[in-house]
Amino acid sequence: MTELFYDAAPNATRVAPERPGPRTYPAKPPEVTLFGTCVVDLFFPEAGLDAIRLLEREGIRVHFPQEQSCCGQPAWTSGYVNEAREVARAQLNLLDNGLPVVVPSGSCAGMFRQHYREVFAEEPDTLKRVDDLAERTFELTEFLLHVCKVDWQDLGQPTQIALHTSCSARREMNTHLHARELLGKLANVERLDHDHESECCGFGGTFSVRMPEVSGAMVLDKTRSLRESGAVEMVTADGGCLLNINGSLEKQKQTFRGRHLASFLWARVSGEVKS
């Protein structure tokens, strides 16, 4: 089953790619690029900054190219392929310097790692660079856990939290496993399961505005199970879900809130308490 569809003749019947084996991780690099993602950029910039701090704490020099924008996912999932491709190309060119790329969002990391292959399927020359980027791309929790091999002292008060992982983060990047393990390193943090934990929060990018009733029913269920989990707050490594879940909680006039995992982790290991 070596002949994957990307390499096959245009009319060849496709077979599914074989399940990838466990990813092998490089040694901790001296420097990395942070790809902040557009949602974090605009709505959760502190989380991006906390990601930088977490990486610096591990002795890594972080670059933040000012020319970065969006990975292209919104247009891609909406079917606007050409528009998505040009935006993707801009990021690809920008990140073409061999440095590891750390992304504080599973779905954008998944876009780099999985979907750029589809976006550039018809450009064999670009595909080589796409593969190279995919190989160098890490979601933040994955990078902290497996590349930095962090060893943390938890400076925070005992707390109970619920973890939400975005669907693409879960399915494309195994973020649920990485985040669980990472949170497990914090002595005073207890992670509580919530009902239908692996189910989608209803965001899905433009789905949330194209099908607001269905999406709304999903986020209502999600926020209910998060609240009923007994946790004090929810953490997630995905800006889109956070926007969805917090926006819904606020609309419902609930006090329960979610927080970006980077910010939560930074607060625990730095001892800084932010409002």
Binding site: M1, A8, A9, P10, N11, A12, T13, V15
Partner: peptide, 12 residues
């Protein structure tokens, strides 16, 4: 017509 230019997948 849909299969033009392609070869049957081997039996694995």
């Amino acid at each position: 017509a849909g299969l033009e230019g392609s070869t049957p997948r081997p039996d694995q």
